[in-house]
Design a protein around this nucleic acid. Structure first.
Lengths: 218, 218
DNA sequence: CCGCAGCTCTCTCAAAAGGGGTAGATCCAC
DNA sequence: GTGGATCTACCCCTTTTGAGAGAGCTGCGG
């Protein structure tokens, strides 16, 4: 970044170099088509999974990497972590299908510069890439509002997330206790805390809420 | 189709006319890029929702329509039904993100010619389109095996599906009974049947199984 | 006409879940 | 070091759930 920081405004000479990381070939092609249609952008590499994404980032050091949140081998959160560890100035744009995925916040708090929904219109995708390439943060409007809502709501502790995961698999309190090596009473205490925090009446409702918020995986 | 049925093998003159229907612009662009790269295919229209898909089909009468299963306004199942009602020879290729979505089977049994996962490689997508355009059925290998598994397993009755939906929302038996205007006892009977058929011990586990199998929506 | 599947309703009983409160042990931050 | 959050564990009590077993009613197909 000391080598060529000269991004003088009226200089369309240097294109925004983009890496795409998504496990769906169709999505990669679609993004590539959209990006390459722009005179000031170019796709320099494509990754089909998280490992590849990390490697290709280090090989190419692009201006922006567009990252799917859910990928084989290494998910978006892990890629963000690894890439930023090796390049603290990396500009990462995280993309996901699901609105309300809890992992978005994990990515953003770890330093991803932007967040985008997969069903966004082309113009929004391009705005996001431009914003992130200039180191400006970008978030879908729907996410900005969710972020606020989320702040208001109490977050689950680590233990509670663990219990919730088992809850979502349909385990009983007794079963949860056995798996976590705690007493059934303690398991019930955690479940009660989860119900309160998620504002649910029953464990089943808690699981429904957790799915909606992307707190657990399918 | 009586006008020009002459699809003599060595006649690359007439291209396979394709309509794409998907609510994600990125996916449409990706599919369009893949299809238009082929010398013997062309995209003649794109739809962003189910209503548009139905209209455009009737306007263009393409050789193949590639349909996303989940779309705004009208989902894949409904589009398949409507299109086949107006054109019983329509060749429809249904596409979805989720493996194991129960609706696939509904589409196929209603007459969709093929099924495809969104994360399929390009070659598979093209094979599927070619197969369907020639009126040959096509299904991802993973689906073929699921179809068999599914046959073996007991299917839920209409009522049970309704109860399961409420179950997945976290409703209690009493609540389910009220909403369906039946007694709590009857609700319990249905729930018990669901537990038996899904091979679950608790209602929460039943919901987990239902999610895995795509029996309920988020 | 009979049988079967689906939906409804009833009953009993044991187990699980949920709501309330209390409290000791850590660990971390102010 | 005091306070707060977290994890652990326990108490009592009510409600809900799940298992088992019947039984009446419909509508459809053999």
């Amino acid at each position: 970044m000391s080598a060529a920081p000269s991004a003088v405004s009226a200089a369309p000479a240097r294109k925004i170099r983009v890496i795409l990381a998504d496990d769906h070939p169709v999505v990669r092609d679609g993004l590539a088509a959209i990006v390459n249609r722009q005179p000031d952008m170019e796709v320099v590499a494509e990754a089909a999974d998280g490992e590849e994404a990390t490697e290709l980032y280090n090989q190419h050091r692009p201006d922006v990497m567009v990252l799917d949140l859910r990928m084989p081998k290494r998910d978006g959160v892990a890629v963000v972590e690894l890439v930023l560890a090796s390049d603290p100035h990396a500009r990462l744009l995280v993309m996901t299908t699901y609105d309300g995925d809890e992992d978005i916040f994990r990515c953003l708090s770890q330093g991803a510069k932007g967040y985008l929904l997969k069903d966004s219109p082309r113009t929004e995708i391009l705005s996001a890439i431009r914003a992130v390439s200039e180191d400006r943060p970008y978030a879908s409007s729907s996410v900005a509002s969710k972020a606020l809502q989320r702040m208001a709501k109490p977050s689950l502790t680590q233990r509670e997330v663990g219990v919730l995961q088992l809850l979502a698999e349909g385990r009983s309190n007794k079963d949860i206790a056995r798996r976590l090596s705690i007493t059934e009473g303690t398991a019930k205490t955690h479940v009660k805390a989860i119900l309160t925090k998620l504002d649910a009446i029953s464990r089943t409702e808690a699981v429904a809420v957790a799915h909606k918020r992307g707190l657990v995986r399918l």
